[in-house]
Nucleic acid binder design. Structure first.
Lengths: 173, 173
DNA sequence: CGGTTATTTCAGGAATGTCTGAAATTTACG
DNA sequence: CGTAAATTTCAGACATTCCTGAAATAACCG
């Protein structure tokens, strides 16, 4: 895949953003490249285009597959793996958000549940602190519950809702 | 501030999560401690409670202030600074989200705008790629626009909307 | 099988991020 | 002012993460 200035810019930017999102620069760059590429690419091709080690491409692609953002295809008469990114931006974004929720929010909710449970037998932590923990748990549960509901809605419905913006409040309220 | 097992657990967990969110462990731990603490704390007190260097506390508190999550108070007859975290979880969360949007999403939207602009004069990047960039820009603008609208709604309205969950779709659609 | 190509594993080096402690600076009081 | 307490700065130690290149493994073909 030829790396035109425009594509390069996207790839580099995506790479920088990636490191803020908890994935390595390579992973993010590879994802950007595959996302933009009209055709599937080989691991060797990616390594060459981005000038990174072949082995690095291998592990990065594995990670992208665990995120469900990249899959493998094959072409007849060629035994190399060809890699392909999800092209639907909506799916890409929701996949990433779901993953982050699972890795970052859900464990926190669990921890708070445990703390709230423990707090009953716990005489040494001040009531004010216990209450703050309880409030936080309640809030997070409400938020994640909402998120799950939103996610369960069919996309066209959600899109319509989004386009209405603040007007929904007037109609409902 | 006394570090009971329950509090310690929250602080440690928050610290681990923090590093996934792009803030250092110290910053996250200090934030957790201040958030739970019923009273404002001194920097020395924090350093002692969490067993981290005084200087580390100093820079971490500065960072938390740039995030608008922590502020300073004073008590009469004491010239030390006392630090105080926002206690309203809703505000804490929206403050963090606003910050992340500003630091991560907005620059990406800007980059995509620049690329889309540049694409007009650009003859070497394939049209398919240009189109993908355009789609992505469009989508992100729609999402951020929705976010801004949601954020502009008064909290009780939003809360009501959240509690309705998927039912809003039925009423509206 | 043996040979060839593709992929993965992994030890160690490079780069980055974090924390500490000493020294410098600021602030406030007598 | 001079002094002492409080805070900040910053160089370098420490830790973590990331990447590479060599070697091992797997997949395929004649």
């Amino acid at each position: 895949m030829k790396l035109t200035p425009t594509i390069q810019r996207c790839v580099l930017h995506w790479g920088e953003m990636g490191s803020r999102w908890g994935v390595s620069r390579s992973v993010a760059q590879i994802h950007a490249l595959l996302f933009l590429s009209p055709e599937p690419l080989t691991a060797d091709g990616i390594a060459e285009t981005l000038a990174i080690a072949r082995s690095n491409v291998s592990v990065s692609l594995k990670e992208l597959q665990t995120w469900d953002l990249v899959s493998i295809t094959h072409v007849i008469g060629d035994r190399r793996d060809y890699f392909l990114a999800r092209k639907d931006i909506w799916e890409v974004l929701t996949t990433i958000m779901d993953g982050r929720k699972r890795r970052e929010i859900d464990p926190t909710v669990q921890m708070l549940r445990d703390c709230a449970q423990e707090a009953k037998r716990d005489t040494e932590t001040p009531d004010q602190v216990k209450e703050r923990i309880a409030t936080m748990l309640e809030f997070l549960e409400e938020m994640t519950g909402w998120y799950d509901q939103i996610r369960s809605m069919p996309r066209p419905t959600l899109l319509k809702l989004m386009r209405m913006g603040t007007r929904v409040a007037k109609i409902v309220g």
